[in-house]
Amino acid sequence: MQTIPVAQGLFTGPSGAPQLLASRCTACANHMFPLQAGCSKCGGASTTTVELGRRGTLWTWTVQSYPPKAPPYAGNVDPATFEPYGVGYIEIDGKLLVESRLTIADPDFLDIGMELELVLEPLYVNENGEQVVTFAFAPVSATEKLSQS
């Protein structure tokens, strides 16, 4: 099945090790996600696109325990099979905090300050039979285990 990103310009790939794309203000070095033309800090009009590091630390989190309304949500909303997902802000390289899905949804395994790594998560299969993916963060230990197996 062909894999396509939920939107262009959010992250590299979708094959290989994904990286989020951010705008960096050429005047004050403020970082913003997703890409935007102006700077929210200094009001400058010039930004460049940069690839963010793949790892970060969890700044805060919650768990989406009930199916969101669809639209806008494009994932599974069937109450019988809906699987809760985590949501958090991840601080990356001291540059910015990115809001993202988390691959784990169990409060017992989520801690502020834990190290996370970017992965791509299947969201839905579109009308062309393509697997649409979005970005998410997973515990580093889990991704290391995956790559070793």
Partner: peptide
């Protein structure tokens, strides 16, 4: 943008 809602963040 649409991806934000589609991804379950809105």
């Amino acid at each position: 943008e649409d991806w934000y809602g589609e991804s379950g963040l809105a």
